[in-house]
């Protein structure tokens, strides 16, 4: 199918983009277009104007500042993956991005777009929640920072206001010897995961002191699993128990790839793989 008619506006700078967004409720931000344009081609939405923010230079910066890795919203997945600083201070992010879609899509798709869109099956929102990244939003009345744990409200629902643009994502680095993990199960390399897991573990003398998991592709948003993590602090991994406890943590939602029970099964498998990798 072909997309419906809309007009196009190339924003000169951030203030310009916010201004247009503020004056038109049906205006939509166009970042890399790798999620937006498929939905337009399928005629799932009908925007008045697309505000292209790709020429706003300040949104493309990647830098380390005050203990944070700051990634500008318009940095493409490819740019982030191949960035020297990212590879040095947060190599797990490069590993994650290598599983996000395919080369041609990574060349256009953006970091900010992925975090702002909040697809429950996407890797980056889950990782942002795991490390409680700071999400920087700019709107008509100025800038504010929302913690990733507060950012995702529900299915494709975030705390971005209609006049706001996500400008950067700030990841804390050097987190108290936290080991970070990432794993997912997909049908084809680069596809959205049937289920995926990012986790962090702090160990002292081989004893697990702190465990955190965030699942993706499992529910309506990145799913934390506090009871499962608590259980694993005091017990050995055991597939049946973990699957049962996961079901009390997460309301698994089926999709075209798998039933909710299948999602619980895959999530329990992923936890098992992660605990094994640790030992």
């Amino acid at each position: 199918m072909k997309s419906p008619a809309f007009s196009y506006y190339e924003a000169k700078d951030l203030a310009d983009a916010i201004n247009v967004k503020k004056t038109d409720d049906d205006a939509v931000i166009l970042a890399g277009g790798q999620s937006l344009l498929p939905t337009l081609n399928m005629r799932l939405s009908n925007p008045s104007v697309l505000i292209d923010i790709s020429e706003i230079k300040e949104l493309r910066e990647i830098k380390i500042e005050d203990g944070f890795l700051c990634i500008g919203a318009m940095s493409s997945h490819s740019k982030v993956m191949n960035n020297k600083d990212v590879n040095e201070v947060l190599p797990i992010l490069c590993k994650i991005l290598s599983q996000v879609a395919h080369p041609a899509i990574r060349n256009k798709g953006t970091h900010g777009g992925s975090v702002a869109y909040g697809d429950p099956a996407a890797e980056l929102p889950a990782f942002a929640v795991l490390v409680d990244a700071q999400i920087v939003l700019s709107g008509f009345s100025g800038e504010r920072i929302v913690s990733a744990k507060e950012f995702y409200k529900g299915l494709f629902e975030t705390s971005i206001n209609s006049d706001e643009i996500l400008t950067s994502v700030k990841y804390p680095i050097n987190q108290n010897n936290k080991q970070l993990f990432f794993d997912e199960i997909t049908r084809r390399h680069g596809d959205y995961a049937m289920a995926g897991l990012v986790g962090s573990i702090v160990q002292k003398n081989k004893i697990n002191e702190e465990i955190n998991f965030v699942f993706f592709g499992t529910g309506d948003k990145p799913n934390e699993a506090p009871k499962t993590c608590e259980y694993l602090l005091n017990n050995e991994y055991n597939y049946t128990d973990i699957k049962d406890i996961l079901k009390t943590d997460i309301e698994f939602a089926s999709d075209i790839s798998s039933s909710s029970d299948m999602k619980a099964h895959l999530s329990a498998i992923l936890v098992g793989r992660m605990m094994k990798e640790l030992n």
Binding site: K2, G33, Q34, L37, N41, M42, A104, N107, K108
Partner: peptide, 27 residues
């Protein structure tokens, strides 16, 4: 597919491969 899935439409833009179905001509 015109949804980004099949890759038949890939072209190079400034030397990088992109899906031509997921980029507007005006871009």
């Amino acid at each position: 597919c015109e949804q980004g899935a099949c890759g038949a439409c890939n072209v190079l833009v400034d030397g990088e491969s992109v899906r031509s179905c997921l980029m507007l001509a005006v871009q």
